[in-house]
């Protein structure tokens, strides 16, 4: 597959992982290996800084980029504080901005996300903001120095697929400066393939894997779907039509 570049780093996988909800950390580790993913996100608030035995970080292979996220932040100020703490405690400078002030729908607050992105990008962080797909926000994020834009496909954890499809298509069409990574709501490999066929640069998946019957196997299925979708995008899909079109036209002889 062609390389994906985020914040100057070359990645050969376009499949990013979330790490919540798994039945054991061993299973998470298997999922990471089988997915071929090179970037995984972990909530800083869930990292055991005392490094006890259940420390989630010890199950993430060393060659993987750790994308700490600011889950639990309700505004820009809290997100900035979490990101700085993550960097200060040696967890790198990749940060996924998650600013959520609604425990029921877990929808991101775009305005606060933008504020946090402006501050953190200026401090040299590789910032991946998680947003409601909105063109104005996405443009402002690019201007603020975001390394990617991560629109949600549908409500997080819902496995509902690309309910926000039209708005994501707008972002894909208009934002060419940084990768568009569809995050949240992708529930099936076919959803991931669909996002990639649309021209998304990558997808981030968590619940669909953690709630699958066999998460590691599902991780492989997703990896294949992401790859198939990307190849299809690069190949250029044919147009769709409401009417049937024969593959060998009957009137072709008239133009011979």
């Amino acid at each position: 597959m062609d390389e994906l570049i985020i914040g100057g780093r070359k990645l050969s996988s376009r499949f990013l992982l979330g790490t919540g909800k798994f039945k054991s950390k061993q299973e998470l580790q298997e999922v990471i290996c089988r997915s071929g993913s090179e970037v995984v996100t972990v909530a800083l608030r869930r990292i055991d800084l005392e490094k006890n035995e259940d420390n989630i970080l010890s199950y993430i292979p060393e060659n993987i980029v750790l994308l700490t996220n600011t889950s639990g932040a309700r505004n820009a100020e809290e997100a900035v504080r979490l990101a700085r703490l993550a960097r200060a405690s040696g967890h790198g400078d990749w940060v996924k901005i998650e600013v959520i002030n609604d425990s029921k729908y877990l929808l991101p607050d775009n305005a606060e996300t933008l504020k946090a992105t402006e501050i953190l990008a200026a401090e040299g962080f590789i910032v991946l903001p998680y947003i409601n797909p909105d063109l104005y926000t996405a443009r402002a994020l690019v201007k603020a120095g975001a390394a990617a834009v991560m629109p949600l496909g549908s409500l997080i954890g819902s496995n509902q697929g690309l309910r926000m499809k039209t708005m994501i298509e707008v972002l894909i069409a208009e934002i060419s400066e940084v990768p568009i990574i569809v995050d949240a709501g992708i529930g099936r490999p076919s959803h991931a393939a669909e996002a990639m066929e649309m021209g998304a640069d990558a997808v981030l998946v968590n619940t669909a894997l953690a709630t699958a019957g066999k998460p590691p196997q599902m991780a492989e299925a997703f990896a294949k779907a992401v790859e198939a979708g990307r190849l299809a995008w690069l190949a250029g899909a044919g147009d769709t039509s409401a009417l049937a079109r024969a593959s060998s036209p009957l009137t072709g002889f008239l133009h011979a």
Binding site: K23, S24, R46, I47, D54, R81
Partner: peptide, 16 residues
Amino acid sequence: LSSKEYDPVFTDWRRM
């Protein structure tokens, strides 16, 4: 919890 295939989580939130 582990025997029932559940992950016992100790750190799901930390003061920051």
